[in-house]
Computed example of a mutant assay.
Amino acid sequence: MNYTVIGGGVGCARFVKGLREHVRRAGQGGRIDVVVNTADDWWVSGLRIAPDHDSLLYALAGVNDAERGWGRAGETERVSAELAVWGTAPDWFTLGDLDLGTHIARTAWLREGLSVSEVYRRLGARWDLGVTLHPATDSEIDTHVLLADRDPVHFQEWWVRHRAQLPATGFAQRGIERAAISPGARDAVARADVVLIAPSNPVVSVGPVLAVPGMRQALAGTPAPVVGVSGIISGAVVRGMADACLAAIGVETSAEAVARHYGARSAGGLLDGWLVDESDGDAVAPLRDEGIAARAVPLWMRDPDTSARLAQDALELASTLR
């Protein structure tokens, strides 16, 4: 079986770890590909930073800081403090020393002319991830936040510095009209037996992946079922500030509303199936009426067992849709 996951960040990392665990426990083998959002990447102190990719890389390698939810475990921050003193990095965006090693390696390879896809391959080769990571695109498509009362700012400034408190009216990926789906992402969708939309931020993690030219066409053309997992439980985000992102584009913070935002594939949207939490069971029937095969299951990923069970539930739903 070939499993292709689309998303980015901590929610995606937890889900992919659960999928990897389920595949290992089932003993049936299988290839797991992850198409990763690149639109929250940016430049800091001359270094290319890739938060969604690195969250996945570190979590799958088992070297992430699980308490903070980002970066490497056992970090020090001496270099970041020096960069702030020199004024080459904002003091509100802290980079650990081990993390900086990743960014320096990434930037060195990019400056040598390697593609983002090849950089992903080299970074992933350090550990036995059991998963292959692919950028959605090899082009730079950094997200900028459109604000009601001032000029746009980079997504990271809005997210990290301002904690998504500045009133936003939308999000734009600069240069995305000239981008193209990466070869690895295209092939991952084409060979998939199941496509899974991770419980990532639907606006700034999944949305930019879907907006890459060629991506929606690839997903529309795959014979594989497309099943998504809600990152909203009982009207609240599981992690982060996705509610602020949803509000900015006029979407209610609910599992049902996010499913409608993605849309039914039978009606030109994305989804064949959608998992909601048991607490959101009332959404199942209305979504089914709209062409999305919804199912209510426990969504909280508290440990390897619950994460693996969620992945199994997603695959079981997909098996009914083939």
Rank of each mutant, 00 (worst) to 15 (best):
A220L: 12
L270C: 11
H261N: 11
R239P: 02
L275K: 02
W70C: 01
K17P: 00
R302D: 14
G263S: 07
V212W: 12
L123Q: 13
L315S: 03
A247S: 15
G29W: 15
L60E: 14
A218Y: 05
H134I: 04
S55K: 02
A125Y: 10
R239L: 09
T253A: 14
A84E: 10
A190T: 13
E256A: 13
R309C: 03
A188K: 07
T102I: 08
C245L: 12
A108G: 09
H134N: 03
A190S: 14
V44A: 14
S80D: 08
R126T: 13
A73Q: 13
L133V: 05
D280A: 08
V237M: 05
A179F: 11
G240V: 00
L129G: 04
A294G: 05
G9V: 03
G74I: 06
R111K: 15
R174M: 07
P286Q: 11
P225D: 02
S115V: 00
P304F: 11
V34N: 06
A283W: 04
W109R: 15
I232N: 01
I232E: 05
D289R: 04
L110K: 14
D151R: 14
R309W: 13
E75G: 03
A190V: 07
V203M: 09
V237H: 03
I249G: 08
L47K: 13
D65W: 12
L166N: 06
T94S: 09
I176W: 12
A314L: 08
S45G: 09
H134V: 05
A308K: 06
A66I: 10
W109H: 12
V195G: 01
V194G: 05
D151V: 07
P225K: 06
G240Q: 06
E316P: 02
A168G: 11
A285Y: 07
G269K: 01
L110F: 09
V131M: 02
F93Y: 15
A136T: 03
T169E: 14
V206I: 15
Y58K: 09
G11R: 00
Q28P: 05
V189L: 10
L219F: 06
L270A: 11
D313V: 01
A180H: 13
E290N: 05
V5L: 08
Y3A: 02
P183H: 10
E21A: 11
V85P: 00
